[in-house]
Design a protein around this nucleic acid. Structure first.
Lengths: 230, 230
DNA sequence: CAGTGGTCTAGACCACCCA
DNA sequence: GGGTGGTCTAGACCACTGC
């Protein structure tokens, strides 16, 4: 007879919840008893239950025990891949183009986004990522030159700033947000859509130990949908 | 002297990566050696490294060892709370209104979304979630009456279908997606925005062991942004 | 204060996978 | 084939928290 794995226990518990054996809010046996039932060590049950709790299915408290969450926390995990990889994994040819490059001082709205107290010098890049013939994403990138002076010397005409940054700078904190926006004249031109079209956009600010690194606004072509399953 | 915890090891490793002690792509010592360095059991190091790998910072392979990911997988986790809780946590008063209710057969596009082979009978609800005075979200809900016949008897005039479903039906599989859409006449009226305004929307399909449960389209009021940090 | 989960240990065997 | 991570065990002590 083989040992039971924590994965099997996870599946078994999940199934019992889904089948209604354990209703929402119901209390599960304590780890020790479950270990005896499964004929395994408590640590094995512990790992299974701990991971299910992390996934949001269970709720655990010392002393009071383990119960099925009343309102399962529905948390979604999205992979945020490199645009290039995303496009290549679609089977399309990836093309990159630098549209604009300027050195300037951080405008007020950017100071707010990057939590700057002074208008630091920044490198502003505007890039286009193309999938096959489709204009896939416009990347509006702002790099803090006080934190990352090396960005001044980098060549962004063949490699996107995202890839350069990832390969060069580690980061410690990230703030990310998704929303809808209307295509302005620039976006309509660069993404090949109509003025005012609704577009999906992501914004991300990155810090390295409180030092502001970069802010990026990624606007996707019409009809883009960010999906996941679990 | 106290024992070292797996959390401390996680922080230490994270810090070494961020400080560049271990560069991107670099190989870490093997678990056994690290355990000796930290003066703890291998299982403790294992848990720390395993979790860091799960978070996307490290990459582990049997035989070849543990290395720092070249392109840290940037995965974002979003909590998908109940609208009511989301609004209440903003300190606003939550109001709910049922706008429309009809029993019908699943149209073709819905069959595709819910992976139906036949046009099952469905309950279609259109609801409004209000935060204070602001029209926060329009919920377009379709419940499969073959899978969930009890929905026919449920009263959705005071409680939103989302809350009812969560309290009533477990689920096993979820597909979720976010995108941008333009306000049509109905949305403009219900959300109090202009025709054609760009709106952020989420869609979610849910199954219970391959049985289609529900599909929902949630369209948020102007300017909504879904954010997270890590 | 007592019960339950949280974590650590020391050791073992196994599975995978690169060389 | 051998090295590395993956997992399990049996036992221990601890930390939190409801009673």
């Amino acid at each position: 007879m083989g040992q039971i794995s924590y994965r099997q226990i996870k599946e078994d518990v999940r199934s019992k919840v889904v089948r209604g054996v354990w209703a929402l809010g119901a209390e599960l046996p304590k780890e020790e008893d479950m270990a005896a039932d499964y004929g395994c060590a408590r640590a094995t049950v512990n790992r299974a239950l701990r991971e299910l709790a992390e996934e949001g299915l269970l709720e655990r408290k010392r002393k009071s025990g383990t119960r099925v969450r009343q309102a399962p926390v529905r948390q979604a995990r999205f992979d945020i891949p490199l645009v290039r990889r995303e496009i290549e994994s679609l089977g399309e040819r990836y093309t990159y183009r630098l549209l604009e490059r300027e050195e300037t001082q951080a405008p007020a709205w950017l100071c707010a986004r990057m939590r700057l107290t002074r208008p630091d010098p920044v490198l502003h890049l505007r890039c286009l990522h193309v999938a096959g013939d489709t204009h896939y994403q416009v990347e509006d990138r702002w790099i803090n030159l006080t934190t990352i002076p090396a960005a001044r010397e980098a060549d962004f005409t063949t490699q996107g700033p995202n890839e350069w940054l990832i390969a060069t700078i580690p980061f410690s904190d990230v703030e990310i947000g998704f929303s809808a926006t209307a295509a302005d004249a620039d976006l309509a031109r660069d993404l090949g859509c109509a003025l005012g079209d609704p577009l999906f956009q992501g914004e991300r600010s990155t810090w390295l130990n409180d030092a502001p690194v970069t802010y990026v606004r990624m606007v996707f072509g019409r009809g883009y949908k960010m999906t996941t399953r679990y």
